[in-house]
């Protein structure tokens, strides 16, 4: 039985205005039950206002072998960072 339940990745949005953030994974027989299980496993202490679940096998991930080609070129391009701007105090969540 255990091996038959597929794995789901769970994303929770903590508040309005924030993005859904990956919080973990769980097993469930289908999508509707996955949302309910996520509610019980990950939002018991009022952590969220919205839940997404995605079948784990539907996620395409970058390969560790491609790490250098993917990420190293960004390392020395300081001009891509918005560090030359004053961030207004009223702007939250940047």
């Amino acid at each position: 039985m255990t091996s038959e339940w597929p794995l789901w990745e769970v994303f929770i949005r903590a508040r309005r205005g924030l993005s859904h953030i990956h919080v973990g994974s769980l097993h469930a027989p289908d999508a509707a039950m996955a949302v309910r299980n996520a509610r019980d496993v990950y939002t018991r202490r009022g952590e969220g206002v919205s839940i997404w679940v995605v079948p784990s096998d539907q996620i395409t991930a970058s390969s560790p072998d491609e790490k250098d080609a993917f990420f190293d070129p960004a390392g020395d391009k300081v001009y891509r960072h918005p560090t030359f701007y004053e961030v207004p105090a009223e702007a939250k969540h940047l």
Binding site: M1, H27, D40, V41
Partner: peptide, 12 residues
């Protein structure tokens, strides 16, 4: 329970 997730659900 049949699954860990159901353990949590029923305990809740």
């Amino acid at each position: 329970a049949p699954e860990l997730e159901e353990d949590v659900a029923l305990a809740n």
